[in-house]
Structures are given as C-alpha cells and as structure tokens.
Design a binder for these strands. Structure first.
Length: 502
RNA sequence: GACCCGGUAGCUCAACUGGCAGAGUACCGGCCUUUUAAGCCGGGUGUUCUGGGUUCGACUCCCAGCCGGGUCACCA
C-alpha cells in the first residue's frame, strides 16, 4: 500500500478510531430488502401517502457523494441497480450513529434502514433510521465532476472505471445481454452449447501462432487454443448435429484496436447445412441480437449509420476488388495482374505469395474499410482455407464467406471439408509449409482425421468475433473498451510500494 | 518491431521564448438540520514517469529508458 499518500493515511486514521469505538468496519453480511434502482423506478411519481405506505426499506451501497449540513447530511448511495439519496439526521439516528456517519467517506459502503420521503426539491430520499458501516474505503475516488478519463488507469484499474463512469458498467451489461441473446437464439434452434478444451496438445482450427504452456504431472507441452473448430467438428461426427461454443481463443500476435491476445469467439456448427444456409442464419441472428439489445436494427458506429436489416449484399472477393477496389476485371483474373496491382497499392508483396494470398491482401488493402453496411464476401481462395470444402464447379474457390461490418471482419464461415482423403492431403500440404518455416500453417492432427474417417455429415460452421460485435453495438472504437481487463504490460511500481505488493 | 503523440497533486487540467509548480475538485480544521457540482471561513497535501546531460537556473532543451494511446508492420 502507498503509505506515503496523505489520503490513505487520513482514512487509516478514521479506521483505527472506528475500531477503537467498537465498530467493525468490515462486517460480514447485511440483509437488504430493496435495491436503489427499483425504488427510484417504482416510486418515481408516488405521493407522500404512497411513500408512507411503502414501509421501511433496507439497502446497501457505496457512498458516491456527501453533503454535510452540521447535524444533518445528505448522501447518495449506489448499488448495482442505480443510486438513491439518503438523509441522515442526528435527532433521528442518535448521536453515536451520527458521530459514526461523520467519519464516513465518499467510497465507503453503507447499509441503511429508513423510510421513503420526498425532499423539497422533489427527490426520492431515504430518511435513515439505522445505519451500518459495511466496508471502509481507503482510497479516494476520482473527481466527482470530471470523472476518470486516463485511459491507462481505466484499463488497469477497471474497478475504478466501473465506479466512476456509469456508461462503462452499462456497456458491460450490454455485452452480457448480447451473449445471452445469442444463446437464446441458438438454444431455440436446437443447438447444444458445449465446452471443448482450451488446452490443446496440437493447436489447430486457424492460422495463428499459439501460446505455449506446460502440464507438470504429464510433462506435456500444451497450447492455448487458437480456435475450437476441430473439436466442435468432432462433436458433429459424434452425432451432436448442432453445437455452439462461446469462449476464449488465444492468439500470440500483436495488439491493436481490433486484436486482444485473448478474445471471445462464438463458433457454431450445423449438420445438413452449407455456407449459403449460414448466410441466411446470420441474417436472422444478428438483426435479432441488434434489435433486442439496441432497440432498433439500425445503429450508429463512430458517426456512421449501419443497418442490419436483411438481406445483405453478397460480393465475391473478385467482384469486390473490381466494384470497390478500383481494379479492372482482367487484373484480378491472373496472378501476375494481382501482383502488379498489389505492388501499385503499396502492399508489401512477398515473392512467395501465390494467387490466393495476393487476392486476399489486395482485398484488405483496397476494399475492407469500405464495407460499412453488413456485407457477405464470398469465394475465398481454397488454398487459404484448408478446412473448407472447395466449390464443386471451380475448386480454386472455397465454399466460404466472411461478414464485414464497419470495415471489421465480424464473421467467417464455410462448408466444412468432410472428405477425409482430401482433408489429409490439405493438412499434409500445411504441415509441409509449416516444416518449411511457415509458423501459421496448420499442424497435422491425426485424431481429427480419424474422426473425419468415421464420417462427418455435410456440415457448415461459422465463427463470430463477440468482442468486435460488441464494439459495434456499443459504439466502441477499441476492443479494449469492451474487454473488462484487456492485456497490458505489467505495471511498474515505485520502490517504496513494492514491499507490500504481492 | 518502426514511427507519431502523451505522462505535472487522489482525479480533471494550467504553467509564455528556460526564471519562485498552480487552479477546480477531492482532502484536513471550523460553522451549518431539506441539500444535490450545498454554502461560508482557513489550509497546498507534489519523486512534474525514471535516469543521465546542457545551463547561473529545467515541468520546459538534449540523450537513454519505462508505461500508455494511435498509425503501420505482424496478424483474422
């Protein structure tokens, strides 16, 4: 603890005084009968008679503000549901309780019992009859007027951010609402929610670098999962024909406003469906979530109106490059044309890149940010989609789409490759690339292949980045704003504070 | 990893071209029984991110580092 801080010293002094007076500053429980938000909602317009009939109320909360008037005081208490004003008079609570109240600071938790009334200015208020200190706070809260705006402190000490900035708590409620609504959607359609391993002996299901960890008893290297895909498909092999999972993936990559090393992903798999079916399903899912959570299917993201009303445009990668990327049709048809266009667009082209990689890189450079309204982009190169089924009419392309909203990739889906022979060839090619130094190429996974050999029905699967979806629905410019505790470098603390620092 | 921007009181921010580090709020003491950014009187509580350097003198200029933000790179 930062003992040099005068604010903390002051509060420690009060804490000792309270203990000396026989007051437990950290009691264990406090049975409440009411919540602040319920009271202010239910009695918003109630008259005095109705308030008197309401009877006594008991609630707990954090002291957010204090206005002392000598032998009487006003304060606001905040609980999870909202805040409510309390009025403490010495002639009502008694001298010793009032003496205790005088040593209460902004930030302390207080339990009160009393009766509702309305002040001269019309605010619903609790006339306190009994008060109990529930927890003493030792650190001062941020400025009551300007709040907390230091981004670093907001991320590092999210607990302070949550106290000081009500919109932050609201944002995380909305995040929970989004996830609850997604569960409702899939549960209603016969999908089973499953939990597959987050520690994988063989990382797989995506092109990404994993985090490595180690199990001591088994003396086994393990990887934090980069995707649940391969296990979810194993579930479908086993007859769980509709499954979904909402949980964390971990990718050992750089950080940005769109990437946190651990992020929450929804993945779902539906047997007897293909990627076209999933486009239709996605056009149901997202509008339902957006309408329920935001109250409308149109949202504003960073100043731009975005409508989730279906249907959404569908563009192949090549069409997108021509229509939006300003390329000529003949340029996108050949590898040489793509390479020239990519170089002209300032892409750092590597000589090893083939047709497919050039196509996707050009798309990212010239088109991605223009896809503001929800747009399905289809016809990804099969060579970059080793787990997806190729199109039967042109095997250069995968049966795959990505969904873009506000320039963000929000979803990625494909018809699953279920031919074990073809999957083996693809994984062998990946393993070869990996051996040649491509750290993001897929690993060989014999058990996954064995599962496919038992037979995977025709299946389509999709992943939706929950953090990015929540960014859109909360108008947040950075993924860190929608993750309670985003990854930061460890805090370096001053030498005088390190000895108590666990 | 590269580049740009930032770091001053618990919080929000000032401090001219290098010249005594300052406001609001919070906090402390006093007064105050319907206030609500309560009010009135008094009080500045600081490793100016860290470490060097230049200078008579550094919050300010230079170098190195730390942390954060952004852009790019990497990457879905």
């Amino acid at each position: 603890m930062d003992e040099a801080n005068a604010f903390i010293r002051e509060r420690l002094k009060k804490l000792e005084e309270l203990s000396r007076d026989g007051i437990d500053p950290y009691p264990s429980t406090f049975p409440i009968t009411h919540l602040a938000g319920d009271l202010t909602g239910r009695y918003a317009t109630a008259d005095e008679a109705a308030l008197a009939a309401a009877g006594p109320v008991t609630l707990g909360g954090r002291v957010l503000s204090l206005r002392g008037h000598g032998k009487a005081s006003f304060a606001h208490l905040k609980d999870q549901t909202g805040k409510i004003q309390i009025y403490v008079r010495q002639d009502v609570v008694g001298e010793s309780a009032y003496h205790l109240f005088r040593r209460v600071d902004v930030g302390d938790f207080l339990g009160v019992q009393g009766r509702l009334f309305r002040t001269k200015t019309g605010e619903l208020t609790i006339q306190v009859e009994h008060l109990t200190l529930l927890a003493k706070s030792l650190r001062p809260l941020p400025d009551k007027w300007h709040g907390l705006s230091d981004v670093e402190v907001r991320y590092r000490q999210r607990y302070v951010d949550l106290i000081a900035n009500p919109t932050v708590a609201e944002l995380f409620r909305r995040r929970a609402h989004v996830i609850a609504e997604i569960r409702r959607f899939f549960d209603a359609r016969g999908f089973l929610e499953v939990e597959t391993p987050m520690m994988h002996p063989i990382p797989g299901g995506a092109a990404a670098r994993p985090f490595v960890t180690h199990h001591n008893a088994l003396d086994l290297s393990l990887y934090l999962r980069i995707a649940p895909e391969l296990h979810l498909k194993r579930c479908v092999v086993g007859g769980l024909e509709r499954v979904y999972e909402i949980n964390r993936n971990f990718r050992n990559e750089g950080l940005s406003t769109q990437h946190n090393p651990e992020f929450t992903m929804l993945e779902f798999y539906q047997a007897y469906a293909d990627y076209q079916d999933l486009m239709a399903l996605t056009e149901e899912l997202l509008p339902q979530v957006v309408r329920t959570v935001c109250g409308s299917d149109t949202i504003t993201y960073q100043g731009r109106q975005i409508s989730f009303a279906p249907p959404w445009p569908r563009l192949s990668l090549e069409e997108a490059l021509v229509k939006l990327g300003g390329l000529r049709p003949q340029e996108v048809r050949t590898e040489a044309g793509l390479r020239t266009a990519a170089e002209a667009s300032g892409v750092a082209v590597k000589p090893t890149w083939g047709w497919g990689k050039l196509l996707v890189e050009l798309f990212e450079a010239r088109v991605e940010e223009q896809l503001v309204q929800p747009t399905f982009v289809t016809d990804f190169p099969a060579e970059l989609s080793p787990l997806a089924k190729a199109r039967t009419d042109d095997p250069r392309y995968a049966q795959r789409f990505e969904l873009y909203v506000a320039g963000l990739e929000v979803a990625n889906a494909y018809t699953e490759l279920n031919d074990p022979r073809e999957q083996r060839r693809r994984l062998e090619a990946q393993a070869k690339a990996r051996a040649a130094g491509d750290e993001e190429a897929h690993c060989m996974d014999e058990d996954f292949l064995r599962a496919l050999e038992y037979g995977l029905p025709p299946t389509a699967g999709e992943g939706i980045g929950i953090d990015r979806l929540v960014m859109l629905l909360t108008d947040s410019p950075s993924i860190r704003d929608v993750i309670l505790f985003p990854l930061l470098r460890p805090e370096v603390r001053g030498p005088e504070t390190t000895d108590n620092d666990q």
